[in-house]
């Protein structure tokens, strides 16, 4: 019990005094997570729309892959990226291993199937009559896609939220391809693991609290956007 109380006290102190390391780790976490989610959305939303609307060979297989990918263990994603980016690996010449970019790649790999799967499900759930009506109005391909995406915008937002949720809390891939280098690739999750290993529960708890606040903050922004979309 004392351990927990001490840890809480330390957490409050760190947060109150504005520890420089903690803030730089938090900022790095926000940046890496945002870029990963953005990349996953950039790739996943069009893919999800394409799978839901297109008619091409292998469409079902792609959807099945995306659905299966929602359960992709972060460690496996990390391992895959690590093998690719390792200095002696096929993409080793790029020198990305143990950089934030490697973390972005691994996290985008984790988030993309989530975005694809949720986006495809959302578009597929639209009433068939809506698709016919949009085409009957004389929509060209781009207008059709835009209107369908607009109608499914709530589902697409949920898809992005799912992608964000998938990467913000993962630690396995970040550790494996980022290396948890102080001042370079250390993020909230990897830093918390390190502090626990060192027995610094107060610092670890403070980092955990910040992570929690960060998640709540981003979720609040996205939920507000969702409510606004619904009202519009």
């Amino acid at each position: 019990m004392d351990l927990l109380l001490d840890a809480l006290r330390e957490a409050v102190r760190l947060l109150r005094t504005g520890d420089g390391d903690v803030y730089s780790i938090t900022l790095r976490t926000a940046l890496i997570t945002s870029v990963s989610t953005f990349v996953a959305a950039l790739v996943g939303l069009p893919l999800g729309l394409g799978i839901a609307l297109g008619r091409f060979p292998g469409q079902r297989a792609l959807l099945a892959m995306a659905n299966a990918g929602t359960g992709l263990p972060p460690v496996v994603a990390g391992l895959l990226v690590a093998v690719l980016l390792w200095r002696s690996g096929p993409l080793g010449a790029l020198g990305l291993i143990y950089t934030p970019w490697a973390m972005v790649i691994a996290q985008a790999l984790i988030a993309t199937p989530l975005v694809v799967s949720f986006a495809a499900a959302g578009v597929m759930a639209l009433p068939p009559a809506l698709h016919l009506q949009i085409r009957a109005m004389g929509a060209g391909s781009a207008q059709y896609l835009w209107l369908v995406a607009r109608e499914a915008r709530l589902a697409l937002l949920v898809a992005v939220m799912a992608g964000f949720g998938g990467v913000v809390s993962e630690v396995g891939a970040a550790m494996m391809v980022g290396g948890n280098l102080a001042g370079e690739t250390r993020v909230l999750t990897t830093a918390a693991v390190l502090e626990v290993n060192r027995g610094n529960f107060g610092t670890a708890l403070a980092l955990g609290l910040i992570l929690l606040l960060f998640v709540i903050g981003v979720s609040a922004v996205l939920t507000t956007a969702q409510a606004r979309v619904r009202r519009r």
């Binding site: 809506l130 016919l132 009506q133 009957a136 004389g138 607009r150």
Partner: peptide, 14 residues
Amino acid sequence: RRQTATVFQDAALL
């Protein structure tokens, strides 16, 4: 299609 219009049983308003 732009010379035509279609009204369905389901009004399918956006």
